[in-house]
């Protein structure tokens, strides 16, 4: 099984940019009901555990928050590879640098270009690692924050976002021939505030098999992944 964890991939924008590979056999919007904020770490932790983790993760120390595999659906798999997923194998150093430049931007010390070049660099690193491990594990999770990180400073700039969505669509396309089960999921969506981007509630999911879901919660995938792991889906 492959899970593409795509931060801030927005249901409306997947449609708008006509991302043919991200839109799989079953696809739609997720709901964030029950969550007060759209916090990245909280949402991925909730995805992994099947529980709403908002109260458990204080905002101050959120980026360091880390789950044990036994707390997550990973326990249903004998072997797995999880690349950069928040709340589990998050690359602290890479993202800390990103946040530092983001802060710098708001203080007029860093340009958008400087910030974006780091984001793309980290993205390429994850991409390389993802394709290197493709087909080698019963469960491979690849996390990509491109849409979120670029979006925060440029979501209002349509051409730039089209490039980002195209890149993510290409990853989905290249992952396809593995003929594995593919789940694509985002933590939340995004909306424009002038040129900038703010988290929205229009999360996205898709799967290359029929799951029969309608507006699922991010926590409801835990059970589904458990059943997949136990071969109850075929």
């Amino acid at each position: 099984m492959i899970i593409l964890a795509l931060d801030a991939l927005d249901n409306n924008y997947v449609q708008k940019f006509n991302c043919k590979n991200l839109i799989q056999k079953e696809h739609g919007q997720t709901t964030l009901k029950g969550f007060n904020q759209e916090r990245t770490i909280v949402l991925w932790a909730s995805f992994l555990t099947g529980k709403n983790m908002e109260k458990e993760i204080p905002i101050k120390t959120q980026w360091e928050f880390k789950l044990h595999p036994e707390q997550t659906f990973l326990k249903f798999f004998q072997k797995y590879k999880v690349i950069d997923l928040p709340a589990f194998s998050y690359k602290q150093q890479n993202h800390e640098k990103e946040r530092k430049l983001l802060k710098g931007y708001f203080e007029d010390k860093v340009t958008v270009e400087e910030y974006e070049s780091l984001i793309w660099k980290n993205h390429e690193e994850n991409k390389k690692e993802f394709f290197k491990n493709l087909g080698k594990f019963p469960l491979l999770i690849g996390y990509f924050n491109l849409a979120d990180a670029i979006g925060h400073l440029s979501f209002g700039l349509t051409e730039k976002m089209a490039t980002v969505y195209e890149e993510l669509d290409k990853i989905a396309e290249e992952a396809k021939p593995s003929e594995d089960l593919i789940l694509i999921i985002s933590d939340h969506g995004m909306k424009a505030v002038g040129r900038y981007g703010d988290h929205s509630r229009n999360g996205f999911y898709s799967s290359n098999i029929q799951l029969g879901l309608n507006l699922p919660e991010i926590t409801s995938f835990y059970k589904i992944i458990e059943r997949i792991a136990k071969n109850e889906f075929s």
Partner: peptide, 8 residues
């Protein structure tokens, strides 16, 4: 207009 377009 731009916003309406974005929100679908």
């Amino acid at each position: 207009r731009a916003e309406l377009k974005e929100t679908g």
